[in-house]
Design a protein around this nucleic acid. Structure first.
Lengths: 194, 194
DNA sequence: ATTTATATTGAATGAACATTCAATAAACAA
DNA sequence: TTGTTTATTGAATGTTCATTCAATATAAAT
C-alpha cells in the first residue's frame, strides 16, 4: 500500500476540520485548533495541506462527497424496484437519511464560497447536475411518464427539495416541521402524477 | 435629532462591513479592515459595536432588511392592480430587482449562522414567514383562487422561488440561466392556474 | 460660558494566526 | 544493513486579530 499513511492522515485531518466546523463554525476554525483537536502539531497539517486554501478545498470535496452519499440509498433502492412507486420515491427523496458526516451548517458555509470562487462553484454545480441526471433515469423507468419530459420533471422536483430543505432548516418545532414537510411532499407528488 | 451621529455612524460601519464581505468574504473581514476601509480607527468601531458578535448581528439585521426590500416593489405593484394577473405576478416574483446592497454570497454566509445561533435562526424564519403571508394576501385578491387554500399556495410558490435562486446561483451562462428560470416560472404558474 | 456627554484618535495589549524551518523518528526500498 | 524518502515534532517567525485605555475634540444641555 503505497503512501497509505498520507492518504489516511489527510482523511483524518479533513474529518477533524469538519467536526470543528460543525461545532464552532467554519470562520472560527484555525489550523492550530485542528492540530489541538487531533493532537498533532500545526506543522504536520501544513505538511499535508500546504496552505489553508487547500485545506478548505479538501473540506469542500469532503462535504460534497457526503452530500452525494445522502442520495445513494435512495438510488440503490429505486434501482432495485421493478416499477416506479411515486409515493415511495417521494418518501425516499425527503427522507434524507442523515449521515453523521453531513451537516447543513457546514454545507452552507462552503456553499457561500461559490460566490467568490469559480472552481468551487463548478464543483457544486457538477454535483447538482449529476443528482438531477440520476433522478431522471429513475423516472424513466415508469412507463406512465414515458410521454413526459423527465429531464424537466427532475429539475422541477429537485428545486422543490432544495427549497424545502433551505426553508425547513429554520424550523425547530417537530410538528410544524412535519406539517410543512407534508406540503412539499405533496407538491412533488403532484408533479409526478398530475 | 437625538443621537443622530450615533445612528449614522452605525449605519456607515455596517455598510462598510457589508461591502468588504461582498468583496472578500465574511470570514476575511476584520474590524481593522473595516476601519481602514472607512478611514476610522478600529477603536471607534468598537465604541459603537462593543464586540464583533454585535457587529455581525448588525450585518444580519442589515442583510435581512435588504432582502425584504427586494420584494417591496412587487408588493406595491400588486397592491395597485385591481385584479391578479398570474403571469405578471410570476414575472415580478422572479425579477428580483437586485438592490446594490444585497449580495447572495453575504446572505448565505449569514444564513450559515442560523445553524449555530437560535436568535439569528428566529430572525431568518420570521422574515420568511412574513414574505409568505404577504404573498397570501396578494393571492387572496383573485376571485378565481377563492376556493383554494392560498396559504398553502404561497408556501408552495416560495419553496420553488427559494430553491430556484439557490440553484441558479451556480449557473453563469446567461442562456442556460434563462432557460432554467423559464422552467421554474412555469412551475409556479402551474401552481396558480392548474 | 460652563458643565456634561459623546465622538474620535492613536498607541498599546496579549492572544491567536498561518506558515517556515531544522531536527529527529519511522517507514520503505535496495 | 544501508541509504533514501516520508512522517513527525517543536520551536520560532512576523503578522493580524479583537479589544482596552487614556487623551483630546466636538457637540449638546444648562
Amino acid at each position: 500500500m503505497k503512501s497509505s499513511i498520507r492518504t489516511e492522515r489527510k482523511k483524518e485531518i479533513i474529518a477533524g476540520f469538519y467536526e470543528l466546523c460543525k461545532r464552532d463554525g467554519l470562520e472560527n476554525v484555525s489550523i492550530a485548533k485542528i492540530g489541538n483537536h487531533l493532537k498533532m502539531p500545526p506543522s504536520l497539517i501544513i505538511h499535508y495541506f500546504s496552505n489553508k486554501r487547500l485545506l478548505v478545498l479538501g473540506l469542500i470535496d469532503f462535504i460534497l462527497h457526503q452530500y452525494q452519499l445522502i442520495y445513494k440509498p435512495i438510488i440503490l433502492k429505486s434501482e432495485k424496484d421493478s416499477k416506479l412507486d411515486p409515493n415511495l420515491l417521494v418518501d425516499r427523496l425527503f427522507s434524507r437519511e442523515w449521515n453523521l458526516l453531513f451537516d447543513d451548517g457546514v454545507f452552507f458555509s462552503c456553499y457561500a464560497f461559490t460566490f467568490r470562487d469559480k472552481t468551487i462553484k463548478e464543483e457544486y454545480k457538477k454535483l447538482h447536475l449529476k443528482l438531477r441526471k440520476t433522478l431522471k433515469t429513475i423516472l424513466d423507468k415508469d412507463e406512465g411518464l414515458s410521454s413526459k419530459n423527465t429531464e424537466l420533471l427532475a429539475e422541477k422536483i429537485f428545486v422543490v427539495i432544495e427549497g424545502a430543505y433551505y426553508y425547513l432548516s429554520m424550523i425547530d418545532d417537530p410538528k410544524e416541521y412535519n406539517h410543512k414537510l407534508g406540503i412539499f411532499k405533496g407538491q412533488v407528488l403532484d408533479l409526478i402524477q398530475p
